[in-house]
Design a protein around this nucleic acid. Structure first.
Length: 319
DNA sequence: GGATGTTTACGCCAGG
DNA sequence: CCTGGCGTAAACATCC
């Protein structure tokens, strides 16, 4: 029984990974993208646990942003001052927490390495025919430890969904050379953008450069953070309500539902859920600073420690 | 110089 | 027991 007062259970470590915390913050934003400092702020506002040891967890969080392909960096427009880039969710990362656990995903989202190479050299197939075998130069850890960095050999051919930006990103039919030199437009940031398989047009659009309408419609359909520039998307309906679904990391999966199957917007816990419904409860967060609920509320908190079990957290039980 | 990104390395641990 | 996801430390680089 936690002492009522300064330190109560509410500053236990929340049962969320940095990835889920960051995804929450991004999804909660109206533009679906946030600068790093605002991600920090979101987390610290809602989780007292993260008001301490900031150096430690913020380093970890930055590591996650860079390391995980599910996060993409979007450069600031000239009219948007501030430090650092915006961070958004890769449109193809889908529902990363469909297993109901916000601590561990079923599978790490990785962008095919071949997609990166395809941007540099059009014939790409020979890349992983040769390279992934003597990849010991850089990707294999020197000690022969297991491959933490999930190199291309382990992911190639493993992602059935990454299809469809290739046409937009760099491999336009007939070897399309982008009309504007993107390297000049966005400077050194183009590297990170291209490396994440980000559609070229979205960057151009975001930066205020003209984008052919037939391309921008595709872009808008899967890039809500680039949207708002043209509200009517030709032919592709953007579900307006689902973008605010509680913790709607999965909502993006709806945008390009490959087949008829639509994913549930709300992850349903598979793990033993001791009490309460499956709603992870982020519903009221989309607008406004969302006051924290009083610590008298529902949680069991006995098994919250170390994050085992129920993915609910009192700080998220809002609205 | 501090904030922001990138990368490598390693330990822990849950699941298959 | 092995694999892979995650957290953490740390050493950089870059940009304001």
């Amino acid at each position: 029984m936690p002492r009522p007062g300064k330190n109560s259970y509410s500053d236990q470590k929340p049962p969320y990974s940095y990835i889920s915390l960051t995804a929450m913050a991004i999804q909660n934003s109206t533009e679906k993208m946030l600068p790093l400092s605002d991600i920090y702020k979101f987390i610290m506002d809602r989780f007292p646990y993260y008001r301490e040891n900031t150096q430690r967890w913020q380093n970890s969080l930055r590591h996650n942003l860079s390391f995980n392909d599910c996060f993409i960096k979007i450069p600031r427009r000239p009219d948007q001052p501030g430090k650092g880039s915006f961070w958004a969710l890769h449109p193809d990362c889908g529902d990363m927490f469909e297993n109901g656990s916000f601590l561990r995903r079923r599978k790490r989202f990785k962008v095919l390495r071949a997609e990166h190479m395809a941007c540099k050299s059009s014939p790409m197939m020979h890349y992983f025919h040769h390279h992934h075998h003597h990849a010991g130069t850089k990707l294999g850890t020197p000690t022969g430890h297991h491959d933490h960095t999930a190199g291309p050999a382990s992911t190639v051919g493993r992602l059935p969904h990454f299809q469809g930006y290739g046409g937009i990103t760099c491999a336009q039919p007939g070897g399309f050379k982008h009309p504007f030199a993107i390297e000049n437009i966005i400077g050194r940031d183009y590297k990170g953008v291209m490396a994440s398989g980000l559609p070229l047009t979205s960057v151009m659009h975001h930066l205020g450069y003209p984008v052919p309408p037939q391309l921008s419609s595709v872009v808008n359909s899967m890039w809500p953070h680039v949207g708002m520039l043209s509200e009517s998307v030709g032919g592709v309906p953007v579900p307006a309500s689902s973008e605010y679904s509680p913790f709607s990391v999965s909502a993006k999966g709806l945008y390009h539902n490959t087949n008829g199957q639509t994913l549930p917007a709300v992850p349903v816990p598979i793990k033993p859920t001791p009490s309460l419904g499956p709603v992870p409860g982020l519903t009221g967060l989309q607008s406004g600073p969302a006051q924290l609920c009083s610590p008298a509320s529902v949680m069991e908190k006995s098994d919250l420690l170390e994050g085992k079990g129920n993915p609910l957290h009192p700080a998220l039980l809002l609205s």
